[in-house]
Structure formats: C-alpha cells, structure tokens
Design a protein around this nucleic acid. Structure first.
Length: 491
RNA sequence: GCCCCCAUCGUCUAGGGGACUAGGACGUCAGCCUUUCAAGCUGAAGACAGGGAUUCGAAUUCCCUUGGGGGCGCCA
C-alpha cells in the first residue's frame, strides 16, 4: 500500500458547492488530508461547480471556512471546474474523434418518459442508445434542427471492468449493466464523470479517496481512462457515515453541517479526533490522538469497510475531554465569544474578564460544549435570579423552617470579614451541626438561594466568587420569596 | 427491478485459523468519592445475523440465505 516512490502522493478534496459540507464530506477531506500529510504529499482543493442549477450562493466560502476552522490546510487550489471548461471539451472532442463517444439529441422529456416506463416494467432504467445508431441522414437532419446535443460515452456492450480498490480489493462490474452516460451536457458543462476523470488526470492525482457512494461509478471512470489512454489513479472507497436511522446523512438528521458544530461549541481538535474514529482505528484501545499522532499513524490499511453511524454522545464525550484539557486561560478565551453571544442582554457588555476568569474553572469541568457554558454559569452574571420558590422547600424542610435557617445563615454571614472559600466553609459547616441539619439539606437550601438551582458548582467556591454583597442580597431575596409564599399558602 | 458494497455488544471499534471464557471506548446500570451537579475510580449487563462447507481446530477461509447500505439523472 505504500505509494510507489516515483509517484508522489497527490490527493484532492473535491466538493460541489451545492450545499454546506456535512460530517461525511469533512471526514473524506480529513482522510485525504491525513493521507497527504502522512506521506509528505500534496492536498489539493477542487470545487466541482459544474451544476449551474444547483449552485448555492456562499457554499464555496463555507467549505473553505470549515476546512480552515479544522486546520485542514490545502497545498493547491481551490481550482474551479467552471474555469476549466476547455479541458473537458478537449477530452470530449478526443473521445468523439476516436469513436468512443457520440452526439445525442434525445430530449430530457423523452428520457424521462423512457425511464418511467422502464421502472414500471421493473426494468433497470437505462438509456436505450437510440442516437448511437443514427443513420447518416438522420444525423444530418438533427444537426440542422437547432437542437443542442449532449455527448455520450460509448460504453462497450460486452466484457467486464475490473479495478483494484485499496480498501475493498479487486472489484469487477459487467459492462452490459452500464449505459451510455453523458459526458457533456447541452449547456456546455461536463458531467461529474468527465470532469472528475479529466481533472484527476491533469492534476496528476495519485490516489482518489472518496466515499463509498462513488463505488458504482468507478467502472465508468475506468472505462474513460482506458478510452483516453490515461493511467488511472489508485482508488480507495471510504465507508459512509450514516444517520441514526442508518440512512445517508442529510438535513433531516438535524445538525449535519460542520458549521453547526462550530456554533454549538465543539473544538476543531475534538471534531477531528471524533471523525477520524469513524472508519479508522489505531489499535484496540486508543481513543484520543493528537494531530501529530494521527499524521504519523494514519494508514488506509486500518480503514474499515463498514459504514458508521454517527454517534453524538461520543462526540460530546470527546469534546468534554478536550475542553477539560485546555488551560484555564485557553478555556476562558474560547468561552468568551459564546458567553457574549448567549448570556441574556441584561448582562452588561463587555464582560468583565477578571471576573469571568474566576467563574470559569468549575464550569470548564462541567461543560461538554462551549454553547453550554452560558447556561451553566448564567447565575454568576445575572442580577436577578429567576427560579421556582418551591426549590427552596425540599421534602423535609418546611417553609417556616427554611426561613429560620436562611435568617440565621444571613446573620452569621453578615459578620464575616474574610470572604473566601475556606473561611466560608469554616463558618457554614459548623452551622449545619449547630442547626442540627445534615450538610446535604443545609447546603442544598443555600445553594438554591444563591444560585437558583439545585445542581451547581461547589457552594463555597461559588459564594466566594460571587462576593459577599451579592450573596447576602440573594439570601434576603430568598427570605422575601418564602415570606410571600407563606402568605399565599395561608390565604 | 437490475448492479455493487457491507455484516462482532444499542453505537464506534480490536480481531487477519489455535494467544477468544471475543478486548477497548461511548452510552446504560450499580457502588465509591461527595454539600448538589460534574469529573474521577471500581464493577455489571451487553455482540461474532443464520445455515452449510473446508480444517484436528473458524469471529477469522469459501458458498448460500437473510439483513442493511449505496448506485442506476443533461446531480454530484
């Protein structure tokens, strides 16, 4: 599998700008990139914009942005097929001249009707090759008819096409199951098959690493290489990434665009680590690999043949691991834009950097994505806490008792001079005993009063960061809540 | 309908004739730690799709069946 020494590794990522790149596209890009980096070859970017009707504005820029975000830097390109039309016409002319192709005047309507009927008769939908058998006279007539023809390939009727795939091994297709596919459309643009073969040849691509969905068009491509008398590259068809319903990944699977993952606060390193494990493994235990390790160890031999189902839970786990590996400074830096974006507008901007640094350490341990950060930490930033007063009343604490407890706590805390994690613990822990309460009950009550929720970072640390003033204010507010709650329940 | 690919725990995978009582990870469950949550630690449940064949021996090789996926466009 080691590339021949005389053929330098040149691989390409060739998306079409008809939508935003999804996980599968990016995984293909990643494998190509890793393969190039591993062998010291070139990673080439080519935009296959030959379908004028499906072109999506901004898609190319999104593709480039996504690759940049992930650090999948390219060495050449992006090339645009729409700017290379002369190459495809040249090849089509060559094929026409060598009698490997012919002009076809059939209308899309005729082809459509034909296909429908074939389907109805449960037959494989194939072009009937009508224009392949046109008489000289018919040809002349059609030439002057004003119809712009397409160019079709003359697929051999007999024989079979065999090629070697680096992942699947030797594969054979019977030629009579293929039809005369179109090379050049009537708008002058090439189809995928022609453009792909021409470009891979002219860019001296050494290995084609693409998704399995292309496997069945490979014999067509082989036939083209033969007809053009070109040496084909090596093929490696990568397993597909499927949605949880086992179907090809698409919009209805929710977030499949790679850009969405950026917005949701996944780190590019985590994304890469996760994606590489979808179809490749180092051994029987390694889950976490750095970029350097990936480049060092990546090989097609360890690419699996089976399609993988995208598993979001594992992605979240990987991302959590990478998030926790960040230094506190790096984490704050990464989290800032998300806080700025997601915290309620009532929190004044710009955010206090020093304060945010104090808040983030316990959040870093808990966040699976950066988008969760604001949600996990908003009570540190908010002036007014919104929560259900019921939270102050656990099964075992009565409203009057809760009121008393908070009053006592408030009293003691008001007197505190040195406000830090240890001093708070030194005061509150004995107080639990004094009140004859379990720490769980006591701290739990205070936690709700201080944070407005039952699950939060450690209490003393939280209080220390919030500061004395804010804590006392929140305790008073809790008392008020209990007060009005008592009145309401009396009436 | 035709052609092609694929088949190990729910999911990602290790496995290339004996090292398999089938290993790891996510998730799940239980316990520990603990002021809650998270993290961490320990443990548990959990798979070779089925049937033939080859072989002293098969998750591993071959065949069939079944299941899943992909392709069959003037889309890529």
């Amino acid at each position: 599998m080691q590339p021949e020494l005389e053929t330098p590794v040149r691989v390409r990522f060739a998306p079409s700008p008809t939508g935003y790149p999804h996980l599968g596209n990016i995984r293909t890009a990643l494998f190509n990139w890793l393969f190039a980096r591993h062998w010291g070859g070139k990673f080439i970017l080519r935009i296959e914009d030959t379908d004028v009707t499906r072109k999506v504005e901004g898609a190319t820029e999104t593709i480039l942005d996504s690759l940049r975000w992930l650090g999948l830097n390219w060495d050449e390109g992006p090339y645009f097929q729409s700017q290379r039309l002369h190459l495809y016409h040249e090849a089509a002319d060559k094929l026409l001249k060598k009698d490997h192709a012919y002009l076809c005047y059939c209308s899309p309507e005729r082809l459509d009707i034909m296909r429908r009927e074939q389907m109805k008769r449960k037959q494989p939908p194939k072009y009937d090759r009508r224009c392949r058998y046109l008489s000289q006279q018919e040809k002349k007539q059609l030439e002057t008819s004003g119809i712009t023809p397409v160019v079709r390939f003359k697929t051999p009727f007999e024989g079979e096409t065999t090629f070697h795939d680096l992942i699947h091994g030797s594969l054979t297709f019977k030629n009579n199951t293929l039809d005369d596919f179109i090379l050049l459309k009537s708008d002058g643009y090439p189809t995928y098959h022609l453009a792909n073969v021409v470009d891979d040849h002219s860019m001296t691509i050494s290995h084609i690493l693409r998704a399995d969905e292309w496997l069945s068009s490979t014999p067509r491509h082989m036939l083209l290489y033969q007809a053009l008398n070109w040496q084909p590259p090596q093929f490696a068809h990568l397993p597909m990434i499927l949605g949880p319903d086992r179907a090809k990944l698409s919009k209805r699977h929710g977030a499949t665009n790679i850009a969405d993952y950026q917005k949701q606060g996944y780190l590019p390193e985590a994304m890469i680590n996760f994606l590489v494990l979808l179809g490749w493994s180092l051994d029987d235990r390694t889950e976490l690999l750095s970029q350097e390790e990936l480049i060092k160890h990546f090989s097609l031999e360890r690419v699996s043949k089976t399609a993988a189902i995208f598993n979001k839970d594992k992605l979240e786990w990987v991302n959590g691991v990478y998030l926790r590996k960040l230094s506190p400074e790096e984490f704050v830096q990464q989290a800032m834009p998300f806080l700025d974006r997601d915290l309620p507008p009532s929190v004044k901007r710009p955010l206090d950097s020093g304060y945010t640094h104090q808040v983030m350490p316990p959040i870093q341990e808990r966040a699976k994505t950066l988008a969760e950060v604001s949600q996990l930490s908003d009570f540190f930033f908010l002036d007014e806490l919104q929560y259900d007063t019921q939270l102050l009343l656990s099964k075992s604490i009565e409203p009057t008792q809760a009121t008393q407890i908070i009053q006592v706590a408030l009293q003691r805390l008001e007197a505190v001079k040195l406000w830090n994690t240890t001093s708070l613990e030194d005061i509150l822990r004995p107080l639990a005993a004094e009140l004859n309460l379990s720490t769980g009950k006591f701290f739990g009550l205070l936690r709700v009063a201080i944070t407005g929720r039952t699950a939060a970072p450690p209490l003393f640390q939280t209080m220390a960061v919030l500061g004395k003033e804010r804590c006392l204010k929140r305790l008073s507010e809790a008392l008020q809540r209990l007060c009005s709650f008592n009145q309401n329940s009396k009436t």
